[in-house]
């Protein structure tokens, strides 16, 4: 205890950060456990009960099927949004005409929350799976387009002029100035978009019933993590609701962590001093 205290007191470095995180999470869990034991949590199950439910789910193929389905939907929607969003954003940076035509339409559609598209998506897309992927796509798409567009337009014109004055062609300026100059805002847009994708996929699964054709067996149900929560709610398993929530937290944390790593790798000139 004395050791952890001195480490925390130093306040810097990775080790003490971990200790601090452990202390803060640990004390919340202990408080929660005590309150649940004293029946002060209005029916919210104690951490130990949640962990027990989680342990059981770890051996349930349906739970992992839910992970797989949600991750797959997020990945499909996200990568479609990344490819199309960056392409559209860059095209709008390069072409004033395209910008003039596209931007007004874009700005009308953008404020519509992805979830408001759910009924329309279910009607117009042939399968539930496609509807959910479409909604997650929308979640990330706008953010990625806007970030690409802003990043591209914010490139210092002196870079372009300097390149032209050294005899570079327009194509070379695009490839070696505009593309890398936009990359930092693309990675920011992608990280934000990824977060929105997880929010949206969960809601879309709850509303659409998680793709009933994919329904698995047992407690895990296999309709995606969002559907897992919803199904646990209707089935009265409060422990599983919390397991589902924490699973999404972990999934979101892992995917943004991966994305951040990738962003740092792709933009090595940022933040080095």
């Amino acid at each position: 205890m004395a050791v952890t205290a001195t480490l925390a007191a130093k306040g810097h470095g990775r080790g003490s950060d971990l200790v601090g995180a452990g202390l803060s999470i640990g004390s919340v869990l202990i408080l929660w456990e005590v309150m649940a034991a004293a029946d002060l949590t209005a029916g919210v199950p104690a951490p130990t009960a949640v962990l027990a439910a989680w342990w059981n789910l770890l051996f349930d193929g349906g739970y992992w099927q839910s992970w797989y389905l949600s991750a797959f939907r997020v990945a499909a929607g996200f990568f479609a949004a990344l490819v199309l969003g960056v392409l559209l954003g860059l095209a709008m940076v390069v072409s004033r005409t395209l910008y003039g035509i596209t931007f007004p339409i874009f700005e009308v559609l953008r404020p519509i929350p992805p979830l408001a598209w759910v009924p329309a998506a279910i009607i117009f897309w042939p399968t539930t799976e496609l509807s959910i992927a479409f909604i997650t796509f929308l979640g990330a798409f706008y953010t990625i387009v806007i970030n690409t567009l802003d990043g591209g337009r914010a490139i210092d014109q002196r870079y372009v002029q300097a390149a032209l004055s050294m005899g570079a062609s327009r194509m070379n300026v695009f490839r070696r100035i505009v593309l890398p100059g936009t990359l930092p805002s693309v990675t920011t847009g992608a990280a934000v978009g990824m977060g929105i994708t997880w929010e949206v996929v969960v809601a879309a699964e709850m509303i659409s019933g998680g793709g009933s054709s994919m329904g698995g067996s047992g407690g895990g149900t296999g309709g995606g993590l969002g559907f897992l929560i919803w199904n646990s709610y209707t089935g009265g398993s409060y422990e599983q609701i919390i397991v589902g929530m924490l699973s999404i937290g972990i999934a979101g944390y892992l995917s943004s962590g991966l994305l951040r790593r990738f962003g740092q790798w792709a933009t090595p000139w940022i933040g080095r001093r």
Binding site: D156, R158, Y159, Q161, A162, A163, S165, M166, R176, I177, P180, G181, L183, T267, W269
Partner: peptide, 12 residues
């Protein structure tokens, strides 16, 4: 060739 007021080295 132009050298600008503040650095116009390409940051990337």
């Amino acid at each position: 060739l132009v050298l600008f007021q503040e650095s116009a080295l390409f940051p990337w």
